[in-house]
């Protein structure tokens, strides 16, 4: 159609906690951006031997491409590039890497091939880092899981609820936690952690 009026604009996505960087006393709360998150799920296979072979093949693929061990539930593996594999439930993991591709699931599918299903979850999670001497105390106020260093170190991942929100927690460093919560409640998530931190400093 001639004379059609089409706006000359380009859309660009914003991160849910766009640029958050908050220092409360000596503990920092910051949004984490530019990560690819892809879930990896084993297919449902009834035969025990066939299921084991599929899992082994998936592990070989991830080891050769990322140097990451396939972990049990509640465990986390990482590599020197800071990629991590989070064991979230039986037969399901999150692979978290730096931003590598506009289509991370398609890229990962070439690695895992037919050993697993993959789904891009990069836009589904709001991610916060909380780092500093008060980080652990702030999180202990709002969750019921023991997150002391003796229970949760860099080899662990925890999925739990904080107040009323679902949160995945990892502890890459002693005084730094990384939290993932559904993007639909990103601002409530940020508010919850921020208020808790203010209450412990």
């Amino acid at each position: 159609m001639e004379n059609a009026c089409v706006a000359d604009m380009t859309l660009s996505a914003n991160y849910p906690l766009d640029g958050l960087d908050e220092l409360i006393e000596d503990t920092r709360l910051s949004a984490v951006e530019n990560l690819d998150i892809v879930s990896i799920a084993l297919p449902r296979i009834l035969g025990a031997e066939e299921a084991r072979q599929t899992r082994d093949a998936l592990e070989d693929n991830l080891k050769s491409s990322f140097g990451l061990q396939l972990t049990d539930v509640g465990m986390r593996s990482s590599n020197p590039d800071k990629d991590s594999l989070l064991g979230l439930q039986p037969g399901l993991w999150f692979l978290v890497t730096g931003k590598q591709s506009s289509e991370p699931a398609r890229a990962l599918k070439t690695v895992v091939r037919d050993t697993a299903y993959v789904t891009d979850q990069s836009d589904s999670w709001a991610i916060l880092d909380i780092a500093g001497p008060h980080a652990q105390a702030a999180l202990e106020r709002i969750c019921s899981v023991d997150i002391d260093q003796s229970a949760v170190d860099a080899t662990r991942v925890v999925r739990t609820s904080m107040e009323h929100l679902s949160v995945i927690l990892e502890r890459p460093e002693t005084e730094r936690f990384r939290l993932y919560s559904p993007v639909s409640s990103a601002r409530s998530f940020q508010h919850m952690v921020s208020v808790s931190l203010q209450n412990v400093v």
């Binding site: 049990d72 539930v73 509640g74 039986p90 019921s144 899981v145 739990t160 609820s161």
Partner: peptide, 11 residues
């Protein structure tokens, strides 16, 4: 069995 003691509120 896989994760140890967890609060009943998670269930």
């Amino acid at each position: 069995p896989l994760l140890g003691l967890r609060d009943a509120s998670e269930f």
